[in-house]
């Protein structure tokens, strides 16, 4: 590589660092998000305790140096439970975003590229889906699919498909009429090749940014559904479930609902802040 590390990669990285350092909120969001990701992947880094086994003697203790977030009615350390819950909750969020991105993106791609009656049908379905609030759509899907973290994640993802399909379609329509696609077509490249080599890479920018924006929404939907009791069955820690468990002690043990909820809110805030930065950068690129 003649362009080299020192002349291109380094200045770009320095530019990114300066961009972040000038924005303390963004920096804080990146740190918070990195911590949550680490907690999800390596819970052992943060705590040695068992999220499922408590010390009954120490039940319902308030926050202290020993138990950062206090303990629950069975004497389990709440911080440990929140750390372990992040793995299940984040996994569900990733699944939801992936489902929305892949299914919605493909629908939009096919619909925009081939046009005709297929496009009409897909877009009319998208219209209807957008007339039903997403949370309700995922509730309906959950009542059809059944309960559990994965099913909740799929339901949340499918409920967001419409927006992705619409954005992808608009982008495909823009790219389809561009000169390089016409050139590829004129030189005899088949539809499949054009779709995969030219249209998909050039049209996927906006849906990828949308996926980042979707992240915060998906965390909220997944945790709302698990708060309502449609996610993981009881002893397994999940963010929404932790808040629901603490609900019975809301008058006596404030920490049981406050801390897990605070972690959810902080994660959503960071995810939203980061995706807004990504969105802004994309606009500047144009």
């Amino acid at each position: 590589m003649a362009t080299g590390f020192a002349t291109e990669v380094l200045p770009a990285a320095r530019g990114h660092a300066r961009f972040v350092l000038r924005r303390p909120g963004l920096l804080l969001s990146l740190v918070m998000f990195a911590l949550v990701l680490l907690a999800a992947l390596f819970p052992g880094l943060f705590t040695d305790d068992d999220p499922l086994v408590g010390t009954p003697r120490e039940k319902l203790r308030g926050p202290s140096a020993e138990h950062l977030f206090g303990t629950d009615q069975l004497g389990r350390d709440l911080f440990t439970r929140v750390v372990h819950a992040s793995s299940l909750s984040l996994r569900a969020t990733f699944v939801a975003v992936a489902v929305a991105l892949v299914v919605g993106g493909l629908l939009g791609l096919v619909s925009g590229f081939f046009g005709g009656w297929l496009d009409d049908v897909v877009m009319r379905v998208v219209d209807v889906l957008q007339a039903i609030p997403r949370l309700l759509l995922s509730l309906a899907l959950v009542s059809a699919l059944g309960f559990g973290t994965t099913k909740v994640a799929i339901a949340v993802g499918v409920a967001s498909v419409a927006g992705f399909a619409r954005v992808m379609r608009a982008e495909v329509l823009r790219v389809r009429s561009s000169v390089y696609v016409e050139a590829a077509r004129a030189s005899g490249v088949r539809s499949g090749g054009i779709l995969a080599r030219h249209v998909l890479p050039n049209a996927s920018g906006p849906v990828l940014v949308m996926a980042a924006l979707e992240f915060g929404i998906a965390i909220l939907s997944v945790s709302a559904l698990s708060f309502l009791g449609f996610g993981a069955p009881p002893p397994t820690p999940e963010w929404g479930v932790l808040v629901a468990d603490g609900r019975n002690f809301v008058a006596t043990a404030w920490w049981l609902t406050t801390f897990p909820g605070l972690v959810i809110a902080a994660t959503v805030l960071s995810a939203n802040r980061i995706s807004r930065a990504l969105d802004g950068e994309r606009r500047q690129d144009r």
Partner: peptide, 14 residues
């Protein structure tokens, strides 16, 4: 927009 509704409700109750 980032606040989970169930959490806000429970904080208000508290």
């Amino acid at each position: 927009i980032s606040m989970p509704g169930f959490w806000v409700g429970l904080l208000l109750v508290q």
